[in-house]
Write a protein that binds this DNA or RNA. Structure first.
Lengths: 150, 150
DNA sequence: CTCGATGCAAACGGTTTGCATAATC
DNA sequence: GATTATGCAAACCGTTTGCATCGAG
C-alpha cells in the first residue's frame, strides 16, 4: 500500500467516512491506471481481485472521490472517464485508440483568475478537454495508407 | 427564416445532403435557444411545431450539425448539451439552475497554438467547460439563508 | 424514379435505486 | 451495538438501431 492510498485513508477518517477494502481497492486501481478509465473499466479491473465487487460500489466510490477532490470526471463524447490526478490540468483524448493523456498547460490557472475577476460566478470546477489523433495512431494510419504523414 | 438558417441550407446542398423541413426546424430551434439544450429538450421543443418528429431525426441532425461545424457537443456531468455557436469559446454551467452561458476567453486560441507546437497530436476539437453557481442563484441562496453573499 | 431521410418501436448500455445483509467504528 | 457501506437485481433514461415508408432531388 503506497503513500497516496494512505492519504486517502486518512482523509476518509477525518471526514467521517468509513475505510473499507473496496474503497481502497478502487482508489488504488484508479491511481495506478494511466489510462483514465471509465467507471465500468474500473469495475472490471477491480473485480478481478474482489469478485464480489458490485458496480454500485464503484459508482458510489467514484462520486466520493470527486467530492473529496481526489478525482475528476472527464466528459468526453459518449463516455465519462475518471482522472486520479488532482492537479489542475487539461486532457487530450485520441479518438482512435481512446487513450487519454494528461497535458500541462501553464495558462490554465491564469484563465481561472480572469474568469473570477470578470463575473460573479462562484467557480467550482473546470475541464479542459481536447481530442484528436495521437502520434502513434497517426503513424499507423500513414502506414496503412502507404502515405507519408502530412 | 433568417440568414443563419439560409447558410445552413446552402451548406447542406453543397455537401450533398438533402434539405428537409426537419433539419431546418431543428437547426433553427438550436440557434434560437440561448439555453444550450440537450437533444431531448430540443426534441420536445421542435415536436410542438412538428408533431411527427422522431427522436432519431433529432439525434441524426445534431450529429450532422457537429460534422458540418455548425454545432458542438458539450459534455457536462450527466448530460450532453448542444451549442449552436460555432465560434471557439468556453462555457460555464450553473449546477443549480442548469443554465449554460457562453464565455469568451481570449487565451483559448493561444492554447491551441501552444498545444500544436508542443506535440504531434492532430488536434480535432476542444472543450473548455467551467461549472459553478451563477450570480442569480447565488443571490437566491443568500436570500434563502438570510445571509449575505460572502 | 432513385436514393437518402424520416418515423416508429424495440433494443441497448451505462448508471442509479431499493432493500436486505455485512462490516466498520 | 449502531449505523454506514456493500451486493444484488431490477428499474431507469438517454440514445441507437433496423426497417418500412416517405419525399427531396
Amino acid at each position: 500500500m503506497n503513500a497516496t492510498v494512505e492519504r486517502f485513508q486518512k482523509l476518509l477518517t477525518e471526514r467521517g467516512y468509513r475505510v473499507t477494502p473496496q474503497r481502497l481497492a478502487i482508489y488504488e486501481a484508479l491511481v495506478e491506471s494511466a489510462s483514465h478509465p471509465s467507471a465500468e473499466e474500473l469495475y472490471h479491473r477491480v473485480r478481478d481481485r474482489y469478485p464480489m465487487m458490485s458496480p454500485a460500489t464503484v459508482y458510489n466510490t467514484l462520486q466520493l472521490l470527486v467530492e473529496l477532490g481526489l478525482a475528476t470526471e472527464l466528459g468526453f463524447p459518449g463516455e465519462t472517464r475518471y482522472d486520479g490526478n488532482p492537479h489542475l490540468h487539461a486532457n487530450i483524448l485520441c479518438i482512435r485508440c481512446r487513450q487519454i493523456f494528461d497535458l500541462d498547460l501553464p495558462d490554465l490557472s491564469h484563465i481561472e483568475k480572469e474568469l473570477a475577476s470578470r463575473s460573479d460566478f462562484l467557480l467550482l470546477g473546470q475541464r479542459h478537454e481536447f481530442f484528436g489523433i495521437c502520434p502513434d495512431c497517426r503513424l499507423e494510419e500513414a502506414e496503412q495508407a502507404g502515405e507519408p504523414v502530412n
